[in-house]
Structures are given as C-alpha cells and as structure tokens.
C-alpha cells in the first residue's frame, strides 16, 4: 500500500497544494512507479488517500497517455515518431526496434522485459531518433546504440540492480518540498 510505504512523500506532496485533489497526478505517478501500471487497485488506493471517487482517478488514467492501464514490460521503450523525429528516421527506427525485439508497438516481449510504444513529440526533436525509457531520455539513437541500451537494461534486470531511479529522486523532492 503506497499510503503506508510512502507516507512521508505523500504528506509532502499533498502539502504543496491548498486542495488535496491537486495531488492526484503526483500520486498516480507514484502509484505507477510502485505497481508498474495504474491497476484498478492502485487507482482505488489513490482515490481513498485523496477522498475522491475512484471514477475520478480512472478518468485521469484514461486521459493522460503516460499512465498505463494495462500491465507493461519492466522497461517501456517509448519511441517518438512524430513529424520532426520521423524526418530524422524515427519510423525506420521503430521498425528496426520492433523487429529486433520481435514485437509490434504496444506489445511486450515474452520475457516481460520490454514494451514498445510509439508516442507523440517528447521535446527532443533535435536529437532524434530518440526514446524515453522509464522516465529517462535516450537520444541520437541508431541500431548500435539501441543494442547497447538493450544490453545495459538486460544486464540490469539480471543483476536486479535498479535502473536509474527517477522514483527515488522524485520522492526525495516531495519530502523536501513539503517541509
């Protein structure tokens, strides 16, 4: 339960706003980091912390594309293939990546490690092709760099060491901000 596990962070986040409801997106981000996706129980948890009806949380999970309503792989490779990136080969890059992992966009590899999604502009058009993986940007990509990235992530998964942890950092800001 995130309410217990992240009590201090949640308190810090809620303290930022005059209205508790404003904490809903931050808590949904937190819940997704904890559970991998915004599961029904995760949404109900967030709703109960903020005194909302679960439907209100569900609504936001559907509106915002960063929330996954279905389980995804351990690493979600979100490749931008919007116009600016596409002019620099993003579509071809998506094809290459999919072929390499033997999946199509929105699918997850059998080992549960990787999901590929194509997304709209991520604000890194000058460094296309690029992708976002678990909140961090990988830019100026090509096949070689993509292989290296997959290698790194696989090694990380095997070793069980956490990847670059946005979660920890954001949590630390939450605590300090609220103080």
């Amino acid at each position: 339960m995130i309410a217990e596990k992240y009590a201090k962070e949640i308190e810090g986040i809620i303290a930022r706003y005059p209205s508790k409801k404003s904490a809903v997106l931050p808590l949904m981000h937190l819940a997704q980091r904890e559970y991998g996706y915004t599961s029904e129980s995760a949404m109900k948890e967030v709703a109960s912390i903020l005194d909302l009806d679960p439907t209100q949380v569900l609504s936001l999970a559907g509106f915002y594309t960063m929330f996954y309503e279905e389980p995804v792989g351990k690493y979600v490779l979100e490749i931008c293939n919007d116009l600016a990136c596409a002019l620099r080969g993003a579509d071809e890059f998506v094809d290459m990546a999919c072929k390499k992992l033997d999946i199509t966009p929105e699918e997850t590899t059998d080992d549960g490690l990787f999901t590929i999604k194509t997304v709209m502009c991520l604000g890194a058009c000058d460094r296309a092709p690029m992708l976002q993986c678990n909140m961090s940007f990988e830019e100026n990509l090509n096949e070689e760099k993509f292989d290296a990235l997959l290698g790194r992530l696989r090694a990380e998964a095997t070793a069980g060491t956490p990847s670059f942890s946005v979660a920890e950092k954001m949590a630390s800001y939450a605590v300090k901000d609220g103080a």
Partner: peptide, 10 residues
Amino acid sequence: DDRVLQFHNR
C-alpha cells in the same frame, strides 16, 4: 454530488 460518472480517454 456523486462524482461517479466521468470521461475516460480523450
């Protein structure tokens, strides 16, 4: 005041 209907998706 029963906020049990909302929009989903966009």
